[in-house]
Simulated scan of single mutants.
Amino acid sequence: MDYIEITDEILDVNKISQMVTDPSCGAISIFVGITRDNFDGKKVLRLEYEAYKPMAKKKMKEICDSIRKQWEIHSIAMIHRINVVPISEASIVIAISSPHRKESLQAVEYAIDTLKATVPIWKKVPVIAV
């Protein structure tokens, strides 16, 4: 099953992990992208994201389909937060379950790299402290 969402809510990594948990799987690989407090040597107060939701969700589904063609995967959760994301909070969580670790590890790396390159979700210029 694929869980795809774009939300302005705080992302709960445990809840997202549970979405992909299955007794037939021995692995869940998770990528959590968080807002850091610096960018190009400057202090960041927060990040802001915006998205073209219909196209973004369509592209996220295409990534899930591509993953399933390449690896033996059980479930995929790809949840991206938009609007304001404060320091140390998650902007994206990708969780992928599979019978064995190699598939889920490779798939989660592919998922984040492909999402960043193809999905119309934009990080606004970081807000820099004066």
Rank of each mutant, 00 (worst) to 15 (best):
M1C: 06
Y3A: 03
Y3W: 07
E5I: 02
E5S: 13
E5T: 05
E5A: 15
T7W: 00
D8Y: 10
D8W: 01
I10M: 00
I10Q: 00
L11F: 01
V13C: 04
V13E: 06
K15Q: 14
Q18N: 15
V20D: 15
V20Y: 11
V20N: 12
T21L: 12
D22C: 10
S24G: 13
S24K: 14
A27I: 03
I28F: 03
S29P: 10
I30M: 04
F31N: 02
F31Q: 04
T35R: 11
R36T: 04
D37Y: 05
D37L: 03
D37P: 01
N38K: 10
F39W: 10
F39K: 07
D40Q: 15
K43S: 14
V44W: 02
V44H: 08
L45F: 01
R46Q: 15
E48A: 11
Y49N: 04
E50V: 10
E50I: 11
Y52C: 04
A56Y: 05
K57V: 10
K57L: 15
K57C: 09
M60D: 06
E62K: 12
I63N: 04
C64S: 14
I67N: 09
I67Y: 08
R68W: 06
K69F: 04
K69E: 15
Q70D: 12
W71R: 05
I73W: 11
S75W: 01
S75G: 05
A77I: 03
R81I: 01
I82G: 00
N83Q: 12
N83K: 15
V85A: 02
I87S: 05
S88F: 09
A90D: 00
A90P: 00
S91L: 01
I92L: 14
I92V: 15
V93P: 00
A95Q: 09
S97Y: 05
S97F: 02
S98P: 11
S98G: 07
R101Q: 11
K102L: 11
E103R: 00
E103L: 02
S104G: 07
S104W: 06
L105R: 09
L105P: 04
Q106D: 14
Q106K: 13
Q106P: 01
Q106F: 07
A107T: 03
E109H: 13
Y110T: 09
A111N: 07
I112P: 01
I112G: 02
I112V: 10
I112Q: 01
D113M: 12
T114E: 14
L115S: 04
K116T: 09
T118S: 15
T118K: 15
V119G: 03
V119A: 05
V119Y: 05
P120E: 03
I121H: 09
W122N: 08
K124E: 10
K124P: 08
V125R: 13
V125P: 04
V127C: 08
I128T: 02
I128S: 03
A129T: 13
V130S: 12
